[in-house]
Design a protein around this nucleic acid. Sequence first.
DNA 1: CTGAAAGCGCTAACAC
DNA 2: GTGTTAGCGCTTTCAG
Lengths: 331, 331
Amino acid sequence: MAATLRDVAARAGVSVRTVSNVVSGFPLVAPQTRERVQRVLDELGYRPNAAARHLRGGRSGLIALVIPEIASPYFGELAGHLADEAEKRGWTLLVQQTGGDAHRERELLGGAGGQAVDGLIVSPWALSPADLRRGPDAAPLVLLGEQDAGGLLDHVAIDNVAAAREVTTHLIQTGRTRIAAVGPQPHLSNATADRRLEGYREALAEAGLPGREVPVARLHRADGAAAMRELIAAGAEVDAVFCFSDQLALGAMHVAVQHGLRVPADLAVAGFDDVEDGRYANPPLTTVAPDKVGIARAALDCLDDRSPREPARHIVAHHLEIRASTAADTV
Amino acid sequence: MAATLRDVAARAGVSVRTVSNVVSGFPLVAPQTRERVQRVLDELGYRPNAAARHLRGGRSGLIALVIPEIASPYFGELAGHLADEAEKRGWTLLVQQTGGDAHRERELLGGAGGQAVDGLIVSPWALSPADLRRGPDAAPLVLLGEQDAGGLLDHVAIDNVAAAREVTTHLIQTGRTRIAAVGPQPHLSNATADRRLEGYREALAEAGLPGREVPVARLHRADGAAAMRELIAAGAEVDAVFCFSDQLALGAMHVAVQHGLRVPADLAVAGFDDVEDGRYANPPLTTVAPDKVGIARAALDCLDDRSPREPARHIVAHHLEIRASTAADTV
DNA sequence: CTGAAAGCGCTAACAC
DNA sequence: GTGTTAGCGCTTTCAG
């Protein structure tokens, strides 16, 4: 059996109160008592019981990460940073996958898998703003990405409009004139995709160029591959594709290369997220690099900050990472 | 405030005992009582308090996944399957990253982040078998990969020797004669890498071919890239590389292509793990595909099975996934 | 079939 | 500075 406060108290000849004081670093303990108790603590290998602490009214030490899927490289990298950052703040990260299913997203927002959590970090896919409304004593929640939640909730995102504009402008500057966008999700109220589409359109309008938009069902490599096949099959004369995720871009690039297109000579490909795969792709992928550590920190800052305040929109830095997949047309 | 059993009991005019019976599906409750209680339960939106349940002596509903890093595609995919499978069994998955640090691995084996967990799924990197010894009342633990734990612990792995032999034999059959192995970790007691090396050596010996072994520090793309640069710089005349992970292979292939080598014409590249990146790489990567869902299930089966029994070694299926990166020499 | 009550391990209000 | 104790919400033994 694991040692309890009582065991330690009995062995050290003090009361549980004193042991509790020592464990929690309460200052009013005589130095020699503290030392004696500490020795017994070590001897018995005392570990506080998280369930009891939590039951007593404290925090559970758990943060839930609610995302479509952990296997996606972007979420994997983000989860890594979140887990590191959470640990620094004494939290442990719990992973809950929604598979992008609205029903399951709703379910997990309520009670995350039966676990009482101190906070939720949610990247919704299919939920509408109305679904995101929270009860009065629900755990604090922070959204990842733009959600148009009408300012009702904290969220952390990069400036997607600006980022998309930068990518598109970059493609234009390297001499591309027929630039397709792969990634709109018109069937979902997915504000992140909407913002990226907005930036893309702005840049094209500014340059007086026509656009071509290829919607996708999900953001996987397979969807990017399908989109590229569609473009090729339709005989679309595009000389660049801007994909709303690196996964889409890698899928698209794969199909393009298989079809004998040279990237970037015949077709420039740009992505979004700066996941590691892109860096080592052949050719390496131009992409928007969000400050992922910044996102992780900002999200946890929101959960840490329990002070009553208006929900805030945290904009995290990003930059354009230019690699060979969009090198200038002229070889 | 969330509703408690007492609230429900008071409102339904019964005792907490009866409410508890209804909640936990205890059979001996009069149908009409059950119905009345259920109505109040729904009305009040009762959710059992996990901390209290756990404190009372039950399970915490938490499983810890202890891995080097969740951002690695292999662990990301595996974590996805584990999370799905865990959920089916009423568990929630907790992610704990070790960064491959022995000290941290040891720490997490003891008490996973202060949380009491019902089980641990551990992929050790730097720990020796001795470190893995468990106390009598520690949570059940299952190891991923081969660990030479001397049969002291449950572990789940594929047959790494056979798999490595198959890859190497395949390379030989496609006409390669100077096949390097990228991935041994002689400085670690990492039995998984040892087994793969063993299979590689066996296949070469059988064919009477010489080998070349390039050790690596980690299994990342960057390490594979470094290994490839080393081979090229050394003027090594290799016509194939077998990498002990897809990440290594993708890094190696990247550098090879950058250096003007044609894959597979000049150099065949094979990996291990069958992560999605490899499928969409240019060219697509030949790899060993472990049954990841099978691994997830087997690991959770071990944790589910609390019956006293000898630790078991669970071998999960794998197959060789042949793709373009190792197509025959003759074009 | 249902009620009363003990107690899981901890924190903190209240004594002294 | 330290001891005593109530009680967090739940399950479960013991009575009825």
